[in-house]
Amino acid sequence: MKNLSKIFFLIILLSGISFTAQTAEKVEYLKTDWSFKGLFGKFDRASLQRGYQVYTEVCSSCHSMKYLSYRNLAEKGGPEFSLEQAKAIAASFEVKDGPNADGEMFTRPGKLSDKFVMPYENVKAAQAANGGAYPPDMSVLVKARGGGVDYIYSLLQGYEDPPADVSLDDGVYYNKYMYGNKIKMSNQLSDGLVEYSDGTNATVEQMSKDVTTFLMWAAEPHLEARHKMGFKAIVYLIILTTLVYFSMKKIWSRVETKI
């Protein structure tokens, strides 16, 4: 009987090995320090603000962010632009509104309550303008990709010349980190592409990190509140558990059984 269980543990071990072998085949993502990881992780405000700049100046011409509103930019735990800055950002966009009293649609400057302006009217229009590939909405993109922030950070820097045995169609590019290595988005970032107002050197690496941080916040706007509350909740639970443990000891001491 002992042998039987040994056999099964061997099988588990084997499958464990094959699992690690499988993951080893995958490309290792580029690593960087994310300030928002860990029990007390918080966003780097300056990085979020720079990331927003990269998004607006580079990504937003194709990628929508339909779940974000301009007011979010001034909210706690986000880029924390001042209310005036956020209002100015909103007002710099033309928002379609209406119908007015005459039944006409009209445009007006954006307000804080408006959603981020979308680059295309609808998915079909986006596909038509991008050779049939829909540039995905970026509101929850980080959570919608298995590798999360590391994947996106790597992808943005993963453009390479294709190996000799890979042939690419028109409008398809080679990316080391893309699933299947073929991507319909061309390399968007180059050193000095944007001019950061805080003077940070806009290298490809820096821009990738900033915009990925921004996307992480966009997907998980309450991350800071979550980490903060989580720490309090767990400390509280540990205290209560300790108290209950000693109460239990006391109560059970009335009967002889140990627990």
Partner: peptide, 26 residues
């Protein structure tokens, strides 16, 4: 109170694990 307090203690241990998932790896 014997089983109530014991169940309560175990429940709290369980809630610590639960809270970890909810707050840190949701």
């Amino acid at each position: 109170p014997y089983i109530v307090i014991k169940d309560g203690f175990a429940l709290l241990m369980f809630m610590i694990v639960f809270a970890f998932f909810v707050f840190y790896t949701p």
